[in-house]
Amino acid sequence: MLQSEVAEQDRVTFTRRPWRRRQNSLAYTLVFLIVAYLGVFILFPIAQQFLTSFSNNVVGVDNVTWVGLRNYERLMEDEDFWFALQVTLTYMAFVVVGAVSLGLLSALLLNRKFRGRNVARSAIAVPWAFPEISAVLVFIWMCNPTFGVMNVFARLFPGIEQNLNWLSDPKLAMPLVIILSIWKAFPFTFLVILAALQAIPREVYEAAEVDGANRLQMLRHITIPEITPTLLLMAVLMSIFSFKQFTLIWLTTGGGPYGGITETLVLRIYQTAFRFFDLAYGATLGVAGFVIVLGLTLLFVYAQQRQDRARRS
């Protein structure tokens, strides 16, 4: 390199330094804001929750003190907690399977060309866009044992002579909450899976067709393997969404009709902390929930990494 070029480069570097400093300080400021936001609104409440779970913080108790693992011992012996966990896992399993299957089925159907396809695609996304509270209010009205439309249809079936008490029936309450949750959630899986289907190159299908593959074989050997990462992502996301679901369950059954039949862990946490004001035990239940969601998230990260490794190899 010529000396004059080196000198020119030095000069340029020198002149750029203040600009770089400004750029760096801007970057640090922006990063600081994000870290501060995360610290104040995410990390601090989580830390506070952990700390509270080791105390006897109940509204009405005067001296809040450190009680060690007492709340966790109570958690282990708490039948209601284990029952709520069982309810949560059952609810999650059905919602995940239901929402992903229905999303997949709808996406496969609406990926085909037919007249009115765009209208059908828009219509299917409506439940997702519908506000949860309005959806629940309409659903409750439909399930009303006296005036609800559900009984009009139910009574068409042989053997049903009296109006069913839908949401107050211990056998029907959970299935209904699951159906409502799937109806509300599946448009999201539909949209994402549809996008994944559209990303599969057309040429792959054309090559398979030339090789004599039928539609079922193409679905099994091309479509499903190609969208497996998306299906996996949907399964994990739906698990997290359904684990966190509060509004739909609380407004339809409030955890009842009795015995906590539809009381998931999130409802139990709310009841404990904000209706019974046992903040410490509510926080302990929250920590248990946090661990479960963290487990699901790690599962997702692991599955994604595995997919990436498989794709690279």
């Binding site: 107050s168 029936d169 009842g256 009795y258 906590g260 209706r275 019974f276």
Partner: peptide, 15 residues
């Protein structure tokens, strides 16, 4: 909390 325990059991009576 008192009410919740009562209502939960009383709901078994009702439904």
């Amino acid at each position: 909390e008192f009410g919740n325990i009562v209502m939960d059991k009383f709901s078994e009576v009702l439904v």
